[in-house]
Simulated scan of single mutants.
Amino acid sequence: MGKPTPIEVREATPADQPRVVATLTRAFAEDPVVAWIFPDPPVRARRMPRVFDMFFAGTAPPGMRLVTPDCTAATLWHAPNTPEQGGLRAAWRIWRAAGSAFFRFKRIGDAVEAHFPPQPFWYLHIAGADPAHQGEGLGAAVVQAGLDRIGNATAYLETANPANPGFYAKLGFRVRDEWDVPGGGPHFWSMIRPQN
Rank of each mutant, 00 (worst) to 15 (best):
I126C: 02
P182Y: 12
T23R: 06
P39I: 04
G146A: 13
G151A: 13
Q17F: 02
G183F: 11
A153V: 02
L171T: 03
R26W: 09
G99P: 02
A27P: 10
G185Y: 00
H115P: 07
A98Q: 01
V112K: 06
G128N: 00
A90T: 09
F121M: 12
F56Y: 13
N81W: 12
A145M: 00
G146Q: 01
V9M: 00
T159D: 00
L171C: 06
D180K: 13
E158H: 06
R93Q: 14
E158Q: 14
R149F: 05
P18S: 11
C71F: 05
N152K: 13
P120F: 08
G166C: 05
K170W: 09
A111F: 02
S190F: 01
P4H: 02
G99N: 08
P62A: 11
G109N: 15
P6D: 06
F116L: 14
P69V: 12
A145K: 08
F105C: 13
G58D: 11
L147H: 10
P41C: 12
P131E: 06
T59S: 15
G151I: 08
G151L: 06
A145D: 10
L24K: 03
I108R: 09
L124D: 08
D70M: 01
N164M: 10
F188V: 04
G185S: 09
Q195A: 15
G183Q: 03
A90Q: 13
A45M: 02
W122V: 03
R104D: 05
A73V: 00
W179N: 06
I7Y: 03
L88W: 15
D148H: 04
F52N: 05
P39C: 03
D148K: 07
A27Y: 10
E136Y: 04
T72I: 02
V43R: 01
L66Q: 08
Y156G: 02
A127V: 15
D110L: 15
F173R: 04
N81H: 14
F52S: 00
L157T: 04
C71P: 11
P80F: 06
E84D: 15
P186G: 05
M1F: 14
I150H: 04
G184L: 01
G99K: 03
T25R: 00
P6T: 11
F167T: 07
H133Q: 13
D70P: 05
P80L: 10
A155R: 07
A29G: 04
E8I: 11
R193P: 00
N196V: 14
F121H: 15
A132T: 09
H187C: 03
A111G: 12
P120T: 04
L147Q: 09
I150P: 08
P39N: 03
K3P: 14
A160V: 00
R46W: 09
F28G: 05
K170N: 12
L147N: 05
G2F: 01
P120E: 01
P32V: 05
I192P: 04
V112G: 08
A35C: 13
G151S: 13
T25N: 03
T82C: 13
I7A: 09
T13C: 12
G2W: 05
V175D: 11
P61F: 02
Q134P: 06
A153N: 13
G166R: 14
D130E: 04
